[in-house]
Simulated assay, not measured.
Amino acid sequence: MSAHAPSGAHEQEIWQFIQSRQVFTHADVDAFCAAGDWKRTNYLRSLARLNLVKLYQRKGNIRYYTAQDPASLSGDAALIDTSAMDAQWRSDKLGSKISAFHDTALPVQAWTPQTPEEKKLWSFVRQQLRFTRDLVLAQKIAPDNKTTLFLRSLENAGLLRSAGYDNGKPYYTAFSTLEIMNRAKDKRLSTEGRIWTAMRAANKFTVEDMLMTFAGFEGEFSEKGIRSYCSTLEKAGYLKDSRRGRTSAQSVRYHLVRDTGPLPPTIKRLPVVVDPNEGRVVYVQGEEVTWATS
């Protein structure tokens, strides 16, 4: 399979995408790759004829395919969790699309919000790493026609950039490549960011394991802080207690079951857990049910 050379940019994107998955559907390729229906369908058919893509499993009307050796896979295709890979793919494509935009875009005119409504709209979109037009309209900050004109003026000024697609919907960002890189860098180098990185590397760990990892940096990584972060992420559905029997004499052994990407879930004062990889709040203190358990 490694010898296959895609013939164009769209084919290369599809090939990279399906190789990154254990299984995939045609709908997955449609949602994450830019090729049109005709090009996508013909390329996947050509891969099937070359025996580079095979049918793995049928579930009702859904067909699951794989670009890997089917013998190396096992289990129900519908239960394979691709959420972490999806988040990483969105992040990577966001960076590449914005970089491509900056490489080819002509100089744009200066633009600043003028009216109170434009200033409120600008403040809102600058608080979102990525957003849809419908999300901005739903805030009712200004009448729909004025909001549409505001977004169009941002686009004309080169300040409204493509941030990929999710479930067929186009997403946008009002951040430059450098701003996105700096935001991501600051998050990864924060205390939470470094603990999150250690969690992703270990997969299964105890608080004592984390303390050993950060030995010598007790000023930044206290036992209380690490224990609190782990406890809140467990409530949010990122971590599970993997102890058998859960006896009180044993240290809690956490298992990272929701790895959504390199940026750390951030705990707010409420506390609220925000996942920057997926751009949404995933847990609020006091809620009985979260997205991770519902």
Rank of each mutant, 00 (worst) to 15 (best):
Leu73Ser: 05
Ala138Trp: 03
Pro116Tyr: 04
Gly286Ala: 13
Ser248Glu: 15
Ser248Asp: 14
Pro116Ala: 05
Leu149Phe: 01
Glu118Gly: 02
His10Thr: 14
Leu50Ser: 13
Phe101Asn: 07
Arg21Pro: 01
Gly60Asp: 10
Val108Ser: 13
Lys187Gly: 03
Pro70Ala: 07
His4Tyr: 15
Pro170Met: 13
Ala77Cys: 09
Thr177Leu: 14
Asn156Tyr: 01
Gly60Cys: 09
Ala184Arg: 02
Gly279Phe: 13
Ser294Glu: 14
Trp122Phe: 11
Arg126Gly: 06
Ser46Phe: 02
Asn42Trp: 02
Leu233Pro: 04
Arg253Phe: 02
Ile98Tyr: 04
Phe32Trp: 15
Tyr238Ser: 08
Thr41Cys: 01
Ser162Val: 02
Thr290Ser: 14
Thr66Arg: 01
Thr293Pro: 00
Ala27Trp: 04
Ala84His: 13
Asp209Arg: 06
Lys187Asp: 12
Glu288Leu: 12
Gln109Glu: 10
Ser96Val: 12
Leu106Ile: 02
Ile14Asn: 08
Met210Thr: 07
Glu287Arg: 14
Gly95Pro: 00
Ala5Phe: 07
Leu256Ile: 05
Ser251Arg: 06
Leu47Asn: 07
Trp196Asp: 06
Ser294Val: 11
Trp291Thr: 08
Thr104Tyr: 07
Glu234Trp: 01
Ala84Thr: 08
Gln19Asp: 06
Ala9Leu: 11
Pro170Val: 12
Asn42Arg: 07
Lys119Met: 06
Ala71Thr: 07
Gln68Asp: 08
Met85Pro: 00
Trp196Val: 05
Arg188Cys: 11
Val281Lys: 07
Ala27Ser: 14
Tyr65Ala: 12
Leu135Tyr: 03
Arg58Pro: 00
Leu189Gly: 01
Lys268Pro: 00
Thr191Ser: 12
Lys119Thr: 06
Ile62Val: 15
Ser46Met: 03
